[in-house]
Design a protein around this nucleic acid. Structure first.
Length: 589
RNA sequence: CGGGGAAUGGCGCAGUUUGGUAGCGCGCCUGCUUUGGGAGCAGGAGGCCGGGGGUUCAAGUCCCCCUUCCCCGACCA
């Protein structure tokens, strides 16, 4: 039993000034966590209880699909990560350090290499497969911007698991088992979530899905189709493009468009020129081809320019662009960069000079909406001039396509064409099929039935455990405080005694708390003497146990009050039957 | 890493303009009163005013550098 008179806890009346999002404010105010370092939090008794409860749910479901728990060091040697190139590819996000002899180490951001090597060490036959291993580990990432308390820290707890199979069918089966386990886990945690198609990012690999908690403060944006089941992270959206309807476009020609460095000014100018648009209607930004130049920063530190062409009514989504170019990063093209590439006329950049073989020597990739035969207005590479009726395939080419244009609400679903919604979420889980990238890099092979060496195929699956604590707080609270789902609450029931220490109320509340514990419930007992009832009620609401029992003035009429934290519903129960009643309530779900 | 704001007791804040004894509310300790919605009175404890360097007789306050935090843009469990 947790007695508030003894518990290491101090609740705060005011929100901490450095917290912005509700989960951060409430977890600090309620005495669950305490900031200890930039991006690092101390877990206080109640917070750690929630953390362990989430771990328990995760373990049960992982064990349920036959995965086996192991535990690696967080402090890892450089070599395995060198072999897979991630020592460099992970960039500044990787915590690197040296030992006293100058040897390189890192704090593990994720453990694909170590698991792969472990299996290689011990297993060498197809008879050993499939096998799935997992750990619940402290992970380290030197985030550029830790924020929102637990939601994005530099040290966090993650459950990561890895499946090892002989062939693609086996991988598909392991992947599905994990996916289903994740569904059960997040259902039990009471987190509202969506499963979306995702990029595999720096991990490499093929099929990949994310579990996103639907949440306004989320950092991910995703689309969802209103009529079919399609859902995807915007980074991973693959646009469905209608073929060009343009036909018999007259020859391209240059027009004078003075002072038109932006799409808006260009459209206004085109309207005033009296030139007709290829589709016969009024000119819009969608008729223009905007060429945006960026600097691509490669993992080895080198920088190469890249031009991206998108319809003028859309921005280039830097997140989507970077996801396509991963592990390289994208930087804005600065004034100094323009000076170094004089062929690029800012505001009037056109395909004439773009392309690896052309004047500017800049690689040129086009959005998939620039289809064969489509006609565009675009820069003429001379200040104040644009080209009209430039047809892709006829008048210009590119070095390839790229999905970097922004995604908007109302864009059509790649599966069924219906308009899509756009929402925000927090990534709480990620499952993906790694394939053979790591097994090849680290030489993980087993002998098959025919005695031949086969490269093993792998899956990798993560759940942010510490993040899940914050996500539950974020998705389950009200203006009074936290509301934990019973499965992970620090206690089933919060017993409030308003007694003065030496009266019937005190002795009966004692009896209630002890009896409930004997019946197998986890009890948080506010047995503090000399604390006013108002304070105890406020604390009970802030702390967020699912059931609150108040032994107080009602006892004079033989009644005890039982409240449901989430609904606020209050019931007066006969003191004689209150134990059974509460046990029933707590076991009901 | 760019732009904006901030750092004063456990928490929230004033004081900085105009340099001159470090304050308020909450919390904490003691005593008395109080006890169903963050009680009252009285008395206390607790501060290298984020760090370093300057200017000055004198710096929380002025100047320079650094660190950290929050928000907005580029990364992920």
């Amino acid at each position: 039993m947790l007695r508030l008179s003894q518990l290491f806890l101090r609740t705060l009346r005011d929100d901490p000034a450095d917290a912005e999002v509700p989960s951060h404010k409430l977890l600090v105010r309620a005495g669950y966590i305490r900031r200890a370092a930039p991006g690092g939090y101390t877990w206080l008794p109640l917070g750690w209880e929630v953390h362990r409860n989430i771990e328990r749910v995760v373990r049960e479901e992982m064990n349920g699909i036959g995965a086996q728990e192991v535990h690696f060091p967080a402090l890892l040697p450089r070599e395995p990560y060198e072999a897979t190139n991630r020592w460099d590819d992970y960039g500044d996000t990787l915590f690197r350090l040296k030992d006293r002899r100058g040897a390189d180490f890192l704090l593990g951001p994720t453990h694909e290499e170590m698991f792969t090597l472990l299996v290689r060490d011990l297993y060498s036959s197809y008879k050993d497969l499939p096998v799935s291993l997992y750990q619940i580990q402290t992970k380290y990432r030197d985030e550029a911007r830790p924020r929102a308390g637990l939601l994005r820290g530099r040290e966090f707890t993650m459950k990561d698991s890895y499946s090892f199979d002989l062939d693609d069918d086996g991988l598909a089966t392991s992947y599905l088992a994990h996916r289903n386990a994740y569904i059960r886990i997040f259902d039990r945690l009471g987190i509202p979530y969506v499963v979306v198609s995702a990029m595999s990012g720096a991990m490499g690999g093929s099929k990949s899905e994310e579990f996103l908690a639907e949440c306004e403060v989320g950092e991910d944006t995703f689309v969802r189709c209103g009529s079919c089941n399609y859902a995807a992270n915007t980074e991973a959206v693959r646009v469905r493009v209608a073929p060009s309807t343009h036909d018999n476009i007259p020859a391209a020609h240059v027009v004078d468009t003075p002072s038109t460095p932006t799409i808006d000014t260009l459209v206004d100018c085109l309207k005033s020129l009296g030139v007709t648009a290829p589709h016969g209607g009024e000119w819009t930004g969608a008729d223009t081809l905007k060429n945006v130049v960026v600097m691509v920063k490669n993992p080895d530190g080198s920088r190469t320019p890249l031009a991206v062409g998108v319809p003028g009514d859309r921005e280039v989504d830097m997140k989507r662009l970077e996801a396509q170019l991963s592990p390289a990063e994208v930087e804005p093209f600065g004034e100094a960069d323009f000076a170094a590439f004089p062929a690029l006329v800012k505001g009037y950049i056109g395909p004439d000079v773009l392309g690896a073989e052309k004047a500017a020597g800049v690689r040129y990739l086009l959005d998939t909406r620039i289809t064969d035969g489509s006609a565009w207005v675009t820069g003429a590479n001379v200040s104040g001039k644009h080209v009209v009726n430039l047809v892709f395939g006829r008048d210009f080419t590119s070095d390839g396509t790229i999905e970097a244009a922004e995604v908007r609400a109302g864009d059509s679903c790649p599966e069924c064409g219906a308009p899509m919604r756009i929402d925000r979420g927090i990534e709480i889980g990620h499952v993906f099929q790694l394939g053979r990238k790591y097994a090849e890099a680290l030489d993980l092979k087993v002998l098959d039935k025919n005695g031949k060496q086969q490269v093993v195929t792998m899956g990798s699956y993560g759940i942010g455990v510490s993040r899940a604590v914050a996500v539950v707080a974020e998705t389950s609270h009200d203006e009074l405080g936290l509301c934990w789902p019973r499965e992970i609450a620090p206690a089933d029931v919060h017993v409030v005694s308003t007694g003065k220490g030496n009266d019937e109320i005190t002795s009966f509340s004692d009896h209630v708390a002890l009896s409930l514990e004997q019946r197998g419930l986890k009890v948080l007992f506010d047995d503090r003497i000399g604390v006013s009832p108002g304070v105890k009620f406020k604390d009970a609401e802030l702390l967020g146990m699912p059931t609150i029992v108040i032994v107080g003035k009602g006892l004079a009429e033989g009644k005890v009050e039982v409240r449901d934290r989430k609904s606020g519903e209050r019931t007066d129960v006969d003191a004689a039957s209150v134990i059974d009643h509460i046990v029933d309530v707590c076991r009901a779900l």
